[in-house]
Amino acid sequence: MKTVKLLDREFRVSIPAEKLDQVIAQMAEKMNKDLEGKEPLFICILNGSFMFASDLMKQITVENAQITFMRLSSYDGMGTTGKVKKLMGFTEDLKDRTVVLLEDIVDTGITISNTLEQIQDYNAKEIMVATMLFKPKALIRDVKINYVGMEIPNDFIVGRGLDYDGVGRNLPDIYTVID
């Protein structure tokens, strides 16, 4: 079993990079069909989603697809604060656009719910949510997710953009904390 030590915690591989690559390729294939002719604007929610967005966008073939970035924060250490801070917005006009929010993980649903509320004010034609990982047992907000890469247990994870106090984002695999 491959393990890593990040700061004061040990983590073990739970989802290898090859599996994540497969899942993202399947998501891209479905999106390419669903979004054909819509010229979508993808919004990558930073910091965690940068690797997912990069991997996904390399496989998006929809004509005139664009990407922009929005930076939010709701975590401190291994837990959510329950409050979402908008640290950096975007400048693109969303009016009458098909928007796809790209999230690394949806767990409680607080971040994506808050983001959806903020985006509503921009009068987008339609708003979709795509997440690489989803923790259904952690969900406390009712949110519609259009594209789910994988459902996972309610464990603390790092890697592939997800971090533990700022470290571990660079790991290509997903690691689960060892208690």
Score class of each variant (00 low, 15 high):
F50S: 03
T91E: 13
E36C: 09
S73T: 08
D96S: 02
L46V: 03
E39I: 10
M78T: 01
M70H: 04
D76E: 15
E103N: 10
L101W: 00
D104W: 14
E63H: 14
F42L: 07
L94F: 07
G48Q: 02
G82Q: 05
E36R: 14
V99N: 00
P40I: 01
E63A: 15
D93V: 08
P40V: 11
L46G: 05
F42Q: 03
A53L: 09
C44W: 14
D93P: 10
E36H: 15
K95L: 04
G37A: 04
K95P: 06
A65R: 08
V62E: 14
V84D: 14
V100D: 09
F90A: 00
T91Y: 00
F69V: 03
I45G: 12
R71A: 12
M57I: 12
M57A: 12
I67W: 09
L101N: 04
M70V: 06
N64W: 01
S49K: 02
F50V: 13
Q66M: 13
T81H: 12
F50Q: 03
D55N: 04
Q66R: 15
P40N: 06
K85T: 13
V100G: 12
G77M: 10
K83S: 11
M88D: 03
L94C: 01
L41S: 12
Q66N: 10
G37C: 13
G82E: 06
I112F: 05
G89D: 00
T111V: 00
A65S: 04
I112E: 06
I112G: 08
N64E: 01
L87H: 06
T108M: 11
E92F: 04
L56C: 06
D76R: 15
I112Q: 05
L87W: 01
I43C: 07
T61E: 07
K95N: 04
S74T: 07
I105M: 08
E92Q: 11
E36L: 15
D104V: 01
I112W: 08
D107C: 09
D76Y: 10
I112L: 05
K83T: 06
G79V: 10
V84A: 13
I60R: 01
I110R: 14
D76F: 04
A65N: 09
D96R: 07
G82P: 13
M78E: 06
V84E: 04
T80Y: 08
D96Q: 11
V84W: 09
A53N: 07
L72H: 14
E39M: 04
M51R: 13
C44I: 02
G109E: 10
S73N: 13
N64Q: 05
D96T: 10
L102V: 03
S54Q: 03
E103D: 14
S54F: 02
L94P: 09
